[in-house]
């Protein structure tokens, strides 16, 4: 039988291609374009080559911000993942408590990020904030505006408050998918609570945990809005993360070239680290 060969269907991909081109590829190329040039406005550009990259990679300001980012992401992952698992394990599996808990967990995720920042900015204020005032009445010297440690702790607690429920919801989804027979078999085998967690629940949560860690890592590594609202990157540069620094450079100082170079490096770091996380965690699952 003669079959008509017609590959015109490929043109159907064109609209998506255009969309992606305009929303992602072209803007990214603009950034690439800026990163190798210098401008003083008026659409006048000078060729700069790799100077901006060279300068960036030799500036302590960049490395310090990067270090802050990495430490921050490390800490919040170390808190949010175990805490999320713990909460998910203790959530009810049936009855009216299920929707109640789910709504409660979803609430922080529904609040706009700058509002989260505002909530904590006010909450932590020493003069009128519930937290700040209470702490100072208790005699604890807390001031996120002036003390770098307090500022960091505030940002971390805020992030934990905001995002732990994402980990909870993902873990909970993994937990409820475990068939009842597993728990019954464990009972018959005489497994302890810890063994049930270690050999049944944790392996079944492995996939969702991978997603949770990836999402939380990427999001926390790109954190901008909340610390910007609460501390504005201060005191000094103590809570200036890469994104905040980038905006300062691009919008505040109008250094488009260096900012573009930094954007690209930032982007590459996020991609690289996410890839490493993903590879490590999927391989771990396969071998064990």
């Amino acid at each position: 039988m003669e079959r008509t060969r017609n590959n015109k269907a490929r043109f159907l991909v064109l609209p998506v291609l255009l969309l992606v081109a305009f929303s992602a590829i072209i803007p990214l190329m603009t950034v690439v374009n800026y990163s190798v040039q210098d401008t003083f406005g008026n659409n006048v550009f000078f060729w700069a080559g790799l100077d901006w990259f060279d300068e960036l990679l030799h500036s302590p300001r960049f490395w310090q911000a990067l270090a802050r980012n990495l430490v921050f992401s490390g800490i919040i992952l170390a808190i949010e993942v175990p805490l999320g698992i713990l909460i998910a394990l203790n959530m009810p599996k049936a009855g009216w408590g299920v929707p109640a808990c789910l709504v409660l967990m979803a609430l922080p995720l529904l609040i706009p990020w700058n509002v989260v920042g505002m909530i904590w900015q006010v909450f932590g204020r020493v003069d009128i904030g519930l937290l700040g005032k209470t702490l100072s009445l208790l005699g604890i010297d807390y001031n996120y505006v002036q003390d770098p440690v307090d500022a960091r702790i505030t940002i971390i607690v805020m992030d934990v408050w905001h995002w732990t429920s994402l980990v909870v919801l993902l873990c909970y989804a993994g937990l409820v998918s475990i068939p009842d027979a597993y728990y019954r078999a464990a009972k018959i085998d005489g497994a302890s609570r810890w063994s049930v967690f270690r050999y049944i629940q944790l392996p079944k949560m492995h996939r969702v945990l991978l997603i949770a860690v990836l999402l939380r890592f990427m999001d926390s590594f790109m954190i901008y809005t909340e610390p910007f609202v609460v501390t504005g990157g201060g005191p000094g540069n103590e809570t200036t993360f890469l994104s905040i620094d980038l905006v300062k450079m691009a919008v505040g100082q109008f250094d488009l070239g260096p900012a573009a170079a930094m954007s690209l490096v930032y982007f590459l770091i996020v991609m690289l680290l996410s890839w490493v996380f993903y590879t490590v965690m999927t391989n771990y699952g396969r071998e064990s």
């Binding site: 019954r184 018959i188 005489g190 064990s288």
Partner: peptide, 21 residues
């Protein structure tokens, strides 16, 4: 008595194994 104390074995409809072991 609990299932463990009764010391019985049960095989379920769908195989229950500890994946990681």
């Amino acid at each position: 008595l609990s299932p463990e104390q009764r010391n019985i074995a049960q095989v379920f409809q769908f195989p229950v194994i500890y994946d990681t072991m």
